[in-house]
Write a protein that binds this DNA or RNA. Structure first.
Length: 293
DNA sequence: AAAGAACGGGTGCGCATATG
DNA sequence: CATATGCGCACCCGTTCTTT
């Protein structure tokens, strides 16, 4: 292992190198937000050109996702109700029964509410543990759980040292505090996500250049009940990018913890792996002394 | 109208995890 | 252990929106 070698700045007009597209291991927040090529430098050429602050925020990991306590159980319960409803429908179809009773009232999108269908089929459990009504929108379901003061569950690695390997896969564990979902950076209340694991040094990867154009006219399918992403820090960045660029925001007005874990100063190689960071006890001290100015 | 910015959606890579 | 799978990621292209 030698000194950190950053990817040399690429000419914006020549992103390809002999048909090989080079990509940095980590793009800065602005480039990610703009979906533009980042040269990985500190600051990157794009930020430099725009006289913008160039920071390399922490990347999220799948196991950082946090869900309201009981969310999984509710999903399982709802799935059970759906299965029961489907089985009931099958039974009725086999018996030559049609839809019994008056047609259900259609909702705004032209179809009856799932809740009404299940209720009519007698598949809607109301045992107190499940919600009083079948929640069509998972985002709403999560918000309800949060509003009800439910705790939160965070995905944990199944190979956790303190977990019982004989027990059912402990995918979720309770977390101490409820995060503020409107501010994904508050997820710093949890242990910090280690820097991205990647073989180091690996400042640039080469992938073949696509020589064809993309298909046009993407289908307009829309899923009306997406599971909301709780931890997309780009939303937060998006909120504040302009004020930050204009230096109109008082950074001291935010709690220090907001920055410690997610914003890695560009001077630190964002490509450092977990192994590279392991054993650096002074890391926290570094943040405490250098990040908060 | 032209230029630039923003953004949706796509490709393909690497990593983490699950599975055999 | 090897392999399969899921996911996050960079960043490209094309379209739409905004600014001049």
């Amino acid at each position: 292992m030698g000194a950190t070698i950053m990817t040399p700045p690429l000419e914006p007009s020549s992103p390809m190198d002999g048909g090989i597209r080079k990509r940095v291991c980590k793009a800065c927040d602005r480039c990610r937000l703009k979906k533009s090529k980042c040269d990985g430098a500190s600051p990157c050429s794009r930020c430099k050109a725009d006289n913008a602050i160039c920071v390399f925020g922490e990347r999220k990991k799948s196991h950082d996702k946090v869900y309201p306590k009981g969310y999984v159980e509710m999903l399982e319960s709802q799935q059970a109700q759906l299965v029961a409803g489907l089985q009931e429908l099958y039974k009725r179809t086999q018996n030559g029964q049609g839809w019994t009773g008056a047609p259900l009232k259609e909702s705004a999108n032209g179809v009856p509410l799932t809740h009404d269908i299940l209720e009519r089929l007698g598949a809607l459990k109301q045992d107190g543990h499940t919600s009083e009504a079948f929640e069509e929108d998972l985002s709403v379901l999560q918000q309800k759980l949060i509003a009800d003061g439910a705790g939160f569950m965070q995905r944990q690695p199944s190979h956790d040292s303190h977990s019982d390997s004989s027990a059912p896969s402990p995918i979720y564990e309770p977390v101490a505090q409820r995060p503020n979902f409107t501010n994904p950076f508050n997820l710093n209340q949890f242990p910090p996500t280690p820097p991205n694991q990647s073989p180091f040094p690996q400042n640039a990867r080469a992938i073949p250049t696509k020589s064809h154009s993309y298909p046009h006219a993407q289908s307009n399918l829309s899923w009306n009940t997406p599971v909301s992403e709780f931890d997309d820090s780009m939303d937060f960045i998006n909120q504040f990018e302009s004020p930050i660029m204009d230096s109109a925001i008082d950074m001291n007005s935010f709690p220090p913890t907001m920055f410690q874990d997610h914003i890695v100063p560009a001077a630190i190689n964002p490509c450092l792996t977990m192994k590279d960071w392991a054993g650096q006890e002074d890391l926290q001290r570094y943040f405490n002394t250098n990040m908060i100015s």
